[in-house]
Design a protein around this nucleic acid. Structure first.
Lengths: 188, 188
DNA sequence: CCACAAATTCCAATATACAGGAATATTCAG
DNA sequence: CTGAATATTCCTGTATATTGGAATTTGTGG
């Protein structure tokens, strides 16, 4: 088996710098020496699994993500793409009590997506299970929500955040006498 | 960081036997010695990443599956995690004109993260470049924003969405005479 | 049961992972 | 610009990952 293992070093260094950590700080967090970290980042050493594991914990990254080595997706033109409020795509429920404004770009479909949800009194957003492992994170901008995930029910207050598995039947219901507005992130 | 790395040995042996391979055969397929394989399976050695990589290739298994990150039954508790508004972590600028509320969970650090931004009049959020390819998506809940990305400047109106590269110096400034409130998604 | 082949583990030598101190490079403030 | 502080790399010694041959264990057929 002559398949070359992917280079971890550059990615580890990127993660470290993004978190504004020095080698010393990461060494302290991970229990791996500064020297070793430096060698790993420059691909001058081949870390053992235990060392790698400690690094993933300290950097809060999955080992598969580390191995996957984010491809440097070249960004498009350095432009700012602005969409006015009335051009943001909306989905409205048949009873008109629930409006979904799609905030994430088209290319986000199937990955992390985000929406603004507007629920009139008695309005609800009821969803079938998403893919295995999917999680939803809802932030209440105004009003109050009842959150249903599988057989579990909870209340999310104004300005609060709720996180729940979305790979089971789930729903958001307006508990407020007025309109409830929330920000929903769907992470797959 | 004293978190024990998961035991790989028993799982590797299970995979080998399931494929009806002897240590000799797997050694031949993977380029790892019989002795080493034996030691790894009995958790008597801590393999380097390169060795582990060769093993995953020979056994046709993802490293994450081997680690057992997701292969096992997911956490059974389909709990809804609710955080009240006053428990959401906040970062405030020194001048007090900008507040960042961290909405995404801790494990999202380094991946897609999301925040609520509160800018008082004349308040601004100024950021150094993130990793290559990083994009930001801001949705204006109320007020109005000036968006700066590199040398490009644009206005994001109320209820509008702006998307821009965040791998260059970038900033958000409040253009409203009152408070501006927005959601920011940082996608890496 | 025994004999033999196959499979696994033990053993010792070599290469390298790894740590911590020292040297060097980089950054920052005046 | 300079000097000091900080961050990273170099260096060396120790521990262990790794190999291939030898010894031991296991499995199978007669």
């Amino acid at each position: 088996m002559t398949d070359e293992a992917p280079l971890l070093g550059p990615h580890i260094q990127q993660l470290r710098k993004r978190r504004r950590l020095t080698l010393e700080q990461l060494a302290s967090l991970s229990g791996v020496s500064r020297s070793m970290l430096s060698q790993i980042e420059r691909s001058q050493a081949n870390p053992t699994f235990a060392t790698l594991w400690n690094l993933t914990k300290a950097l809060s990254v999955d080992i598969s993500e580390l191995v996957g080595g984010r491809a440097n997706t070249p960004p498009a033109a350095p432009a700012i793409d602005v969409v006015g409020g009335h051009f943001v795509p909306e989905i409205r429920s048949e009873d008109g009590l629930c409006t979904l404004r799609i905030l994430s770009p088209a290319q986000s479909v199937g990955r992390t997506e985000w929406y603004e949800i507007l629920l009139e009194p008695n309005g609800a957003l009821v969803s079938a299970p998403h893919a295995a492992g999917a999680m939803e994170h809802v932030t209440v901008i105004e009003g109050e929500l009842e959150v249903v995930s599988g057989a579990t029910v909870a209340r999310a207050p104004a300005h609060g955040v709720a996180r729940y598995p979305a790979d089971v039947p789930h729903a958001l219901r307006n508990l407020s006498p007025g309109r409830t507005r929330a920000f929903l992130v769907v992470a797959n």
